[in-house]
């Protein structure tokens, strides 16, 4: 089994001190700036999970969870930092810390490059710096961004990711200055959490219609913690829009759902399941391909139901096998 989404905790600032240039150590010591202060989840809410070390992760993910490999990410919100130099320095130190404290310590663990996505050029530099390090298999991109991810501002970044051979992992979260919905700031995190599926839908639309996948035919994207039961209806809508309006984006030569199935994979946790399991089976079938879903535990975050449990009981054995490991192995080109 390959677990496509586990989390290592945010570094504490003092974890980064040995890895930061002296100037920044002095800056953090002598000012009230203590690094990225935003969180993608209210820190004490049930979804935030508890802070655990490597031993805890080993036990939960590999020993009890039964994963042979796990792809981790650290959700340190460098995208929330306005100061560009601080954002870039924190990202670099976080990646060095991930290498040293996690990836080098545990050969079954893979990692995600943290990059200051609000500064596409700096993000590309950081990705190039880390791309060949052992353990890194993807770049972490928070779902909420200041501009939709298909924007021309990000095209050089997509080229860099494609060239680097890394996967682009778009993950729940993000802390840009914009409200998380097109109709302003909601009162509750519960709403923001619900609306995140729509943010993923927006990003998918944007990347396809702006021609990202035409410009980068080898680009691979994984959606993590996005849910997937919203996807079929969004594909129907996008395909209909393309039939009507493709003259506005003539470089999009195939129905958007084709691009999705070719370039995007989706982690199964959280599973926003219909109450009737038969309906869940229909939704999985409506995705239109057996290659799309990746087993993901989202350790150590808590969810409403255990996605793996539900799906493996419901789906045919052969599809279950693909979701457990084959899809991830082939998408991440893990061999073996």
């Amino acid at each position: 089994m390959i677990d496509a989404d586990v989390h290592i905790p945010n570094p504490r600032l003092r974890d980064l001190y040995p890895l930061l240039p002296e100037h920044w150590v002095e800056h953090f010591n002598n000012t009230v700036d203590k690094g990225a202060s935003q969180e993608y989840y209210p820190p004490r809410s049930p979804v935030a999970g508890r802070r655990g070390g490597l031993e805890e992760l080993r036990e939960a993910v590999f020993d009890q969870g039964g994963a042979e490999l796990a792809i981790s990410s650290c959700l340190y919100a460098v995208d929330s930092v306005h100061n560009p130099d601080v954002a870039a320095a924190l990202a670099a130190a976080t990646n060095d810390w991930q290498s040293r404290e996690w990836l080098e310590q545990e050969p079954r663990l893979r990692g995600s490059v943290v990059a200051p996505i609000q500064l596409p050029a700096a993000a590309a530099e950081e990705i190039e710096r880390c791309a060949d390090r052992p353990g890194f298999v993807q770049v972490l991109i928070p779902a909420r961004t200041e501009h939709p991810l298909g924007s021309r501002l990000y095209h050089p970044l997509w080229k860099t990711i494609e060239r680097s051979g890394l996967v682009a992992a778009i993950h729940f979260g993000g802390a840009p200055v914009m409200p998380p919905t097109p109709t302003g700031w909601p009162s509750f995190f519960l709403e923001e959490y619900t609306a995140m599926a729509q943010v993923f839908a927006t990003q998918l639309t944007s990347m396809i219609v702006e021609g990202v996948f035409d410009a980068c035919p080898d680009l691979r994207v994984v959606f993590l913690e996005s849910g997937f039961t919203w996807i079929p209806s969004h594909l129907w809508r996008m395909d209909k829009e393309w039939r009507n309006l493709r003259r506005l984006v003539p470089w999009v030569r195939r129905p958007p759902s084709d691009y999705f199935r070719e370039h995007v994979r989706v982690g199964i946790q959280p599973l926003d399941a219909p109450p009737d399991p038969a309906h869940l089976g229909e939704v999985v079938d409506q995705l239109g391909s057996d290659d799309l879903l990746l087993y993901a535990s989202d350790y150590p975050h808590v969810h409403a139901c255990d996605a793996g449990d539900l799906l493996f009981r419901l789906l045919p054995e052969s599809l279950g096998r693909k979701i457990r490991s084959e899809n991830a192995r082939s998408f991440y080109r893990m061999g073996g």
Binding site: S206, E210, L248, V249
Partner: peptide
Amino acid sequence: HPITGAGHASYYIEDHTSPPQAVQA
């Protein structure tokens, strides 16, 4: 506000695809 939860889109096809996002919110 921008017409998406992830900033300003570029094309009318995005404007025309995105109404379900606002109504769901």
